[in-house]
Simulated scan of single mutants.
Amino acid sequence: MPQIALVTGASSGVGEALSLLLTDRGWRVYGLSRRSVELEGVIALPADISDAEAIRRAVGQLLDREGRLDAVLHCAGVGGAGAVESMPEEQARQVMEANFWGSWNVCQATLPYLRKSPRARLLLVSSIAGHMGIPFRSVYCASKAAVIALSDSLRLELRGSTVQVACISPGDIATNSIATQYRQPAGDLDPLYRERYRRADEAMVNNVDQGMSARHVAEKMAAILERETLSPHYVIGEPVQKLSTIAQRILPGRAWEWVLGRYYS
């Protein structure tokens, strides 16, 4: 029988590419997203990950049809930019609701069924930004750091079960994420921040424009999914991005802040 996978964020980016890739490889894929999408061979499950009850209903529909669940690949998430001092609380909360609480909701809704699979896999997508603080991306970094901590806790809690958990931290991906996320207008910021915010925002837009393809990240995740034993963490990106997660841990704090500040200046 085909393996059953739930992929979140299936309407675009990595989630869409991964849904199609796994389908081509013989998986039966359910693609969950806020809006129903038509992807060849993928069964659509419309639901907002920040709505716990909607996620439970969607997973219930999957179980009613299949009776089992073998893998969850949680790709859904949102970005956001602004200064801590002045970013609207509503916008900041939406980022945390989607990225952290969305991950929490997906885990709570699926783990009881994943644990019944003889070879269960749970892949949570964080970000390289979750390993460090990036100027004017504070709530995004915090939400993705929370996903890393969540995955670490889950692995310990799930010892003795059949579920293997891995956290995936990609670097910049060439998607429409910048265009669809909230970015605080530079004119709303205090003059202390304004020019540095503009430069940091331009750097972020440029990095995304030149980022990896969603297909590339999807292929890496599909390869991880097929491994017999999963490592706790995987970083996907350019060598300099991978090195950044190591440098952040080993460089003295002031030295690392200088490096990061130069990068986004």
Rank of each mutant, 00 (worst) to 15 (best):
D188S: 13
I224M: 12
S177T: 07
V208W: 04
R159H: 12
V205S: 12
G171L: 11
P170A: 11
G160H: 02
R196F: 06
R199Y: 13
H216M: 00
A200F: 09
T162G: 05
Y193F: 15
L189A: 04
L158G: 06
P170G: 15
V217L: 02
A203W: 09
M212Q: 09
D190A: 01
R159K: 14
A222F: 10
D172L: 07
T180G: 09
P191D: 10
Y193A: 00
A179L: 10
Q184F: 02
R196H: 13
R199M: 11
S177M: 08
N206Y: 12
D201C: 04
G171S: 08
S169P: 02
A223P: 08
Q210H: 15
E226S: 08
A200M: 14
V208D: 08
E195I: 10
E219D: 00
A200H: 07
D172Q: 11
D201R: 00
L225H: 04
M221G: 01
M212T: 01
P191L: 03
V205R: 10
Q181A: 15
I173Y: 04
M204Y: 13
A200N: 06
Q210F: 08
I173L: 05
T162P: 13
A214W: 04
D190T: 02
M204V: 08
A200E: 06
Y197K: 00
R159I: 08
V163Q: 05
R215K: 10
I178F: 15
I168T: 11
D172E: 09
N207D: 05
E195W: 05
M221N: 00
A179D: 13
T180C: 07
A200I: 03
E157I: 07
I224T: 12
P170Q: 10
K220G: 08
A218M: 11
L192Y: 13
Y182V: 05
S231H: 10
A174W: 07
D188R: 06
A214Q: 01
S231A: 14
D172Y: 13
I173V: 15
D201A: 12
A218Q: 01
D172T: 07
N206V: 06
Q184I: 11
N207R: 14
T180N: 04
E226F: 05
V208N: 01
A218L: 00
G171Q: 07
E195L: 13
E157D: 13
L192P: 00
V217T: 04
P185Y: 07
S161G: 15
S169Q: 13
S161H: 13
E202S: 11
Q181M: 12
V217K: 02
R215Q: 14
N207V: 02
R227L: 14
G187V: 04
E226G: 01
E226I: 09
S169G: 09
M221L: 12
M212G: 04
R183M: 12
E219H: 11
R199Q: 13
V165Y: 10
L230P: 00
L225A: 01
L225E: 04
R227K: 14
R194N: 11
